[in-house]
Nucleic acid binder design. Structure first.
Length: 744
RNA sequence: GAACGAUUAGCUCAGUUGGUAGAGCGUCCCCUUGACGUGGGGAAGGUCACAGGUUCGAAUCCUGUAUCGUUCACCA
């Protein structure tokens, strides 16, 4: 039987069995890593990339070291690696930097939750230093795990440049940025109403709030019998801190009272109320009068600022009342609410109680109800005119990036989201009362304040200095990511070669907190944009369209999928048909379909190697004089390659990958190969040779074109192809993209 | 309250610039034992949410409506 297959020696034994990704992928990744080709310096050294080639750089959105990578990360890696491999093959000086994010509050919160569950202890049972180290260790375990996962995804990351937002180099970048902003007055310390998380005992920024709808009661009442105006509130317990009642200046009902001041005893607490006029008050809502509590509401604080009202703090960090008699003092806000309401009823001051739906802000991490409190904190001023930037504000610099500097957001509808966020931006509270993170690089000694950079931690010379105990919002360090990873503040070659980066590829949900912050930092510190294109991907949901989450336990481990179907199949399923900014419901059927495709490609190769002529000596660069039939097939194929190339260059990977899939299976295999069987069997020698060359050519180029999407199987098949010229002698990862000629 | 998105075959979703619809899975029939049973051929199945409009022509552009979803804001 064997003797009938006179070309069987062309077929490696491995190819005779179905494709086995599990056996292949790990080995191939190791091969790549050892080759050094993930590192652009090595590519230049070995003559793969020209020294003066244009660079293509991209930093990985650093995953939080709170846990492991999930399918959303698989999507992100599939997209980025496809583009990176494509650009590398096109001859760009291609750099993709890996890294992870310490994620400050998220990591500390998760660690502390585990700690309490397992040992009953909390952070207060440890020294600051010990606790920091424990959280960090927890993070580093996850970090290591994620590095393994990234390799499993096949990502061609330059591991020699790996970064962590909390490592020494990044810490230097953080201190440098902080000092520069501090010295120019952009970072300031101020006593303002901030979002306080009573459970986490820290401030949180506006972006870390989650609004939850709840039932609430809207109470309408007067402070005292002789007070002329009724007010409404859902939080009567805060009203012991009121210092004014605000009405709309055009409201005829109340005009006569504007400017008057009243004393009252509210729930046994003496208060002094001034009646003021402010346009922010809507006459139509409630009674048209707003009780102003400057210490416990952002909006009221703004009104109070405009009218120079005193501010009285009545709620403390533990969300307990800190004024009043024994009935009130020390009570939790929820208890105090009912006590005050009852007092109002008892004193015939309550006019109305209605049930309403209300959105209450909670902490993203601890789920605690946020208490607005006045506190001394560090802020970044987004409205200050910056002398070193032609008196533009940070907000203006951020808008400039998309309006003038050409930062392109894909899909473009998110451009609006970006602008809207910036236009509503308030000063960014950057200090946190947690331990895990970058400690504020500021030291105090008496009235002296020192802000420093120098390693190891920036501390000043001499004795008696104590460092500010707060740490920075995690987004402060991630805002520096595109350049802190390239060696900034040192003027390194990497920084010169690769910044601004070409592309960034995060999920759309972090457009405001991350993408916008990177633009802020880069525009201010470097006077340039951090990246040229922002490709936003969507969310991977479960098959029912529900978001994966740890609490719902509906997560699917990427490893399971990879074990069953292979990474290439998973990657294809994450790319084909999923447009930018679109969510996708994960469906294992889709992955299975592409694992079939992998096998199909495997068998196409087997067939061509075993059925064509002279495969050992076939030189692709020696194109025979093809008859029309073959010539047309070739033209059609090249046209598709050009098409696909254009699609990828415009980041339409979801279309390019599908076209490739469709061509290879339903044109190449189903039509071209099928009709070749007869030719290869019954044709003349010339016919056989021409057809053989054509099949081998399309196969070879298809494998190259598929490589960005299915890197493992294509690299493996590449090794089986005849080695008849220099190009084919190399690893597939560094072969030139098949249609460089097609760019014409 | 506002912005944005979605609404296409039984299910999950593509459809890049307007030229009367495609994929995967599922269903049914047939074929394939010399690439692949993870294969091949074929079939059924869609008034492209609805109503108007622009156009020679619209799933694709415009207006409005409905339902679902996301995000932002928030009424004190």
């Amino acid at each position: 039987m064997e003797d009938e297959h006179n070309q069987a020696q062309n077929v490696p034994a491995k190819l005779l069995k179905p494709y086995d990704p599990a056996e292949t992928e790990g080995r191939i990744y190791k091969l790549w890593e050892e080759s050094g080709f993930f590192n652009p310096d090595v590519c230049i050294q070995k003559g793969v990339t020209k020294n003066d080639a244009e660079s293509f750089s991209i930093v990985l959105p650093p995953p939080n070291v709170t846990g492991r990578l999930h399918l959303g990360h698989a999507l992100e890696h599939s997209l980025q690696d496809a583009v990176v491999r494509f650009k590398r093959m096109q001859g760009y000086k291609t750099l993709w930097i890996p890294g992870t994010d310490h994620a400050a509050i998220a990591t500390q919160a998760r660690f502390e939750k585990n700690l309490t569950k397992e040992t009953g202890k909390s952070r207060h049972d440890f020294s600051r230093n010990d606790f920091f180290n424990m959280v960090n260790e927890f993070g580093l375990i996850n970090q290591k795990d994620m590095q393994t996962q990234m390799r499993l995804f096949g990502s061609s990351l330059d591991w020699s440049r790996e970064a962590f937002t909390l490592d020494a180099n990044r810490s230097l970048a953080v201190r440098t940025a902080f000092k520069q902003m501090y010295d120019e007055g952009l970072i300031y310390k101020g006593h303002k109403v901030i979002n306080w998380d009573p459970k986490g005992q820290t401030t949180v920024s506006d972006d870390e709030l989650v609004y939850v709808e709840r039932d609430a009661t809207l109470y309408t009442f007067k402070y005292s019998a002789n007070f002329p105006i009724s007010i409404s509130t859902t939080r009567p317990e805060t009203k012991v801190g009121d210092t004014a009642v605000a009405v709309n200046p055009n409201d005829e009902r109340y005009k006569q009272y504007i400017g008057q001041e009243f004393d009252a005893v509210f729930c046994n607490v003496p208060i002094h109320i001034k009646i003021i006029a402010d346009y922010s008050v809507e006459a139509e809502f409630g009674t048209g009068a707003l009780g102003v509590t400057p210490a416990h509401s952002q909006i009221d604080a703004e009104i109070a600022m405009r009218h120079e009202l005193p501010s009285v703090q009545v709620i403390n960090e533990y969300a307990k009342i800190m004024v009043g008699d024994e009935n009130l003092i020390g009570k939790k806000t929820s208890e105090a609410r009912e006590i005050v309401a009852q007092w109002l009823r008892d004193n015939n001051l309550m006019e109305k109680e209605e049930k309403i739906k209300q959105n209450v802000s909670t902490s993203e991490r601890t789920e605690a109800i946020i208490e607005p409190l006045p506190k001394m904190q560090w802020f970044i001023n987004v409205n200050k005119q910056i002398p070193s930037h032609k008196n533009k504000t940070l907000k203006e610099l951020m808008l400039e990036a998309v309006e003038k500097d050409g930062v392109k957001i894909i899909p473009d509808r998110f451009d609006k989201t970006y602008r809207h966020w910036i236009n509503n931006l308030r000063d960014w509270c950057i200090s946190r009362q947690i331990i895990y993170g970058h400690q504020i690089p500021v030291w105090y000694k008496g009235d002296e304040l020192y802000c420093g950079i120098n390693p190891p931690a920036g501390e000043p010379e001499g004795d008696g200095w104590t460092q500010d105990t707060d740490t920075l919002d995690t987004w402060f360090s991630s805002g520096l990511w595109t350049f802190s990873t390239l060696g900034w503040p040192n003027n390194t070659d990497d920084f010169k070669n690769y910044h601004p980066t070409t592309l960034i590829n995060p999920g759309y949900e972090i457009l405001p907190p991350w993408v916008a912050r990177m633009i802020l930092m880069s525009k201010y510190l470097l006077n340039e944009v951090p990246f040229k294109t922002v490709y936003l991907h969507g969310i991977v949901r479960d098959s029912k369209g529900i978001k994966f989450s740890k609490s719902l336990k509906n997560g699917i481990e990427p490893e399971e999928i990879i074990k069953d179907c292979g990474t290439d199949a998973l990657r294809m399923s994450m790319v084909v048909g999923i447009g930018p900014g679109n969510d996708t419901n994960f469906d294992i059927q889709k992955v299975k379909a592409y694992s079939k495709f992998a096998n199909k490609l495997w068998n196409i190769t087997r067939f061509i190697l075993s059925s064509t002529t002279q495969t050992n000596t076939l030189d692709l660069s020696q194109k025979p004089n093809l008859p029309d039939t073959e010539s047309n097939i070739l033209d059609e194929f090249e046209a598709i390659l050009i098409d696909i190339t254009t699609d990828i260059e415009n980041y339409r990977l979801y279309i390019a990958s599908e076209k490739l899939y469709h061509y290879v299976w339903h044109n190449f295999a189903d039509i071209i190969i099928e009709e070749s069987k007869d030719i290869l069997k019954n044709g003349s020698t010339d016919e056989k040779n021409n057809r053989s060359w054509l099949l081998m050519y399309i196969l070879t180029r298809s494998i190259q074109a598929l490589h960005p999407f299915m890197p493992f199987i294509t690299e493996e098949l590449w090794s089986f192809l005849p080695k008849t010229n220099k190009e084919q002698d190399n690893l597939l990862i560094i072969t030139p993209w098949p249609i460089t000629a097609g760019k014409q």
